[in-house]
């Protein structure tokens, strides 16, 4: 304990406080934002059997934040009877996306190949997005499981973006930008997204300009979407940890500034 520096106490405080709050069974209520309502309304208003491309554009590191977002969006899409075409433009998102789609598809009794399909990973995302605009079968001749594109019932008649209602990008970085700029702008397909909280401000200009239809951001977005769907999932639970960490950070800022101003008054730099 003697060798502990102030920053170690800060680390320890955050760990203890978050662990303590998480062990209590507190239920947080979140107010649903307009953005979340807009995305929910969009998926809800699509006619049954509409085709959606779900792109898992994230790395493994962001799983704790991305999984609740993806789960809520997939649950909604499956429950509305939409046909989902999954893929990944990041190699690390490939297996994660496949697992999630299969797991939630089973929950809603959806059949692989008939109600949803997973095309897998394609390198060089810009080329892949542009290529799908010309021909999806040429971009993905086989699905993730090795089935030929032409042998998969759900994909019969799906040639390019013209045959799909929207692209849903689940991202922890800037990849959604490429969906907006190349698929949205050039091929005129609606782009919606579920993104990590840190990326929300990056996409705000696209959202305001109408280049992206709607998005939800971070654990708060996931918790709001879960509330609209009427279940408590990973988003609602993780909001507890996030709120605790936010309040802890605010407390640290206040303490740090109190010390700073007190020292400045005393002439200590």
């Amino acid at each position: 304990m003697k060798n502990l520096l102030p920053r170690h106490y800060v680390f320890l405080g955050l760990f203890v406080l978050t662990a303590l709050v998480m062990s209590l069974n507190i239920k947080l209520d979140v107010e649903v934002s307009e953005n979340t309502k807009r995305l929910y309304g969009f998926i809800d208003s699509l006619p049954e059997n509409s085709y959606l491309i779900v792109s898992f554009d994230h790395e493994a590191s962001s799983i704790p934040e991305i999984k609740p977002i993806a789960t809520a969006l997939l649950k909604h899409a499956f429950s509305k009877g939409h046909k989902l075409i999954g893929l990944s433009l990041f190699s690390e998102g490939t297996l994660i996306g496949y697992r999630l789609m299969s797991e939630i598809g089973r929950e809603y009794d959806r059949k692989y190949g008939q109600d949803y399909v997973y095309l897998g990973f394609k390198p060089q995302y810009i080329a892949a997005i542009l290529s799908m605009g010309e021909s999806i079968p040429k971009t993905f001749p086989k699905d993730y499981l090795g089935n030929k594109y032409s042998d998969i019932p759900i994909l019969s008649g799906i040639e390019n973006y013209d045959d799909v209602s929207a692209v849903l990008s689940i991202a922890d970085g800037s990849l959604t930008t490429h969906w907006i700029e190349y698929a949205g702008m050039r091929y005129n397909i609606a782009v919606v997204a579920g993104v990590a909280a840190a990326m929300v401000t990056t996409y705000d200009p696209y959202l305001e300009a109408g280049q992206m239809h709607s998005m939800i951001g971070g654990l708060r977005g996931a918790a709001e979407y879960e509330k609209m769907l009427g279940y408590d999932g990973g988003g609602a639970r993780a909001m507890l940890a996030q709120t605790t960490a936010h309040l802890y950070v605010i407390l640290m800022i206040i303490i740090g500034n109190v010390i700073y101003f007190r020292n400045r008054k005393k002439g200590i730099s």
């Binding site: 102030p6 920053r7 800060v10 680390f11 405080g13 955050l14 760990f15 790395e59 493994a60 590191s61 962001s62 799983i63 704790p64 690390e92 960490a245 802890y248 950070v249 640290m252 800022i253 303490i255 740090g256 500034n257 700073y260």
Partner: peptide, 23 residues
């Protein structure tokens, strides 16, 4: 990877205490 990413929360807490000053 998730662990490394989670460590950010600790560094942010530490940075907010040590560096985020209204100078």
């Amino acid at each position: 990877q998730a662990t490394v990413f989670s460590l950010l929360a600790f560094f942010v807490a530490s940075a907010s205490f040590r560096g985020f000053r209204a100078r």
